[in-house]
Design a protein around this nucleic acid. Structure first.
Lengths: 142, 142
DNA sequence: GTACGTGCAAACGTTTTGCAGCGGG
DNA sequence: CCCGCTGCAAAACGTTTGCACGTAC
C-alpha cells in the first residue's frame, strides 16, 4: 500500500473533517482517518487498523490506535459495535443500520435497511432514555 | 445465605437437569445450577456467580465458574449475551427475547416479548444460516 | 508557550489454559 | 478404573493508563 503520500487535496478534506469534529490534526490521525474513511463503509477493529497503519508505513503505537478510535467514536465519527467478547468493532457507517455477524470469521456484514422491518420500539423504563438500538443476527456456516 | 444445604428434592431436580443435558453432577455444578436456576430468570456474570457461590459457602475457583458457565451454555442451559466489552452475561431465560442495557449500571433488563414487533427477518447471505438474533436497546439516565 | 497528542511499557480485568489430583459413572 | 471435573497458578487477550517527550495551534 502506498505510504504517507496522501495528496494535499485528500489531506485537506480529512483535516477539515477532524477539525469540524473538534479534533487536532496530527499526522497519525490524518493517516488513520484516511484508512478508516477513505474506502467506503468499514467494520474495523483496533488490530486491523494497527496492521493497516503499520503496513502503510506509519509507525504508530497501539495506544495511539486505541486513543484515536475512542476519540473518533466520542466525536461522533465512528459507531461502536460490541458483539464479540473482548473485541470492539468500529463502524464508519453512521446511519442506523444493523448487522449479521459471522462468528467463524469474526466478520460483520451490513443488513440492508429495507430488509429489516421493525414495529414500534418498546418504551424505556421511566427514568431512562433510549440511547441506541443494536440488532445483530448471528450466522454460522451452513 | 444458606450454605450447601439443599433439600434432596431440589438436588434431585437439578441432578436430573444436568444429567439430561449430558453433564456430570458434581457438587459444584449442583450448587451453581441452584444459584442460576433456583430464582427465576437471571442475567448473571462470572463475577456475580463467583461472589454468590463464595458467599453461599462453596469454595469454587474462578476457573470452575468459567468452565461451568461455558459448559452450561454449550449444553443449552444458558444463553450468552454480549453487550459490554470484555464481560459476558449469561441469561437463564432461554426463550427468544431481547434486552435493554443500562450502561451506567452494567445491568440488563428484559424486554416484554409483545413490546417488540419485528417484521420479517432478513435472509442470511447464501452459505450461511441464522443462528440467533439479538436486539439490545441501550439506555442512559434521563 | 501551553495544552493536547504520542510512544513506550507497565497495569488492568476478564477469560483461558496446563497440570496434578480428585471423584462420578 | 477411567475419563472428566476441579483447583491453582500462570498466561493470554484486548484494552487502558502513567509518564516523559513532542507537536499543533
Amino acid at each position: 500500500m502506498a505510504p504517507l503520500s496522501l495528496s494535499s487535496q485528500v489531506k485537506a478534506n480529512l483535516s477539515e473533517k477532524l477539525r469540524s469534529a473538534g479534533l487536532r490534526t496530527t499526522k497519525q490521525r490524518i493517516l488513520l482517518a484516511h484508512l478508516l474513511f477513505g474506502a467506503g463503509n468499514r467494520h474495523i477493529t483496533a488490530e486491523i487498523l494497527f496492521d493497516e497503519a503499520s503496513r502503510s508505513g506509519l509507525r504508530v503505537s497501539q495506544a495511539t490506535i486505541y486513543n484515536t478510535l475512542n476519540q473518533f467514536h466520542k466525536a461522533g465519527l465512528l459507531h461502536e459495535v460490541i458483539i464479540d467478547q473482548g473485541r470492539s468493532y468500529f463502524d464508519t457507517n453512521l446511519e442506523e443500520h444493523h448487522h449479521f455477524y459471522v462468528e467463524s470469521e469474526a466478520r460483520l456484514i451490513d443488513i440492508d435497511q429495507d430488509e429489516i422491518v421493525m414495529g414500534d420500539l418498546p418504551k424505556p423504563p421511566s427514568g431512562y432514555q433510549t440511547d441506541g438500538i443494536q440488532i445483530v443476527i448471528r450466522l454460522s456456516n451452513k
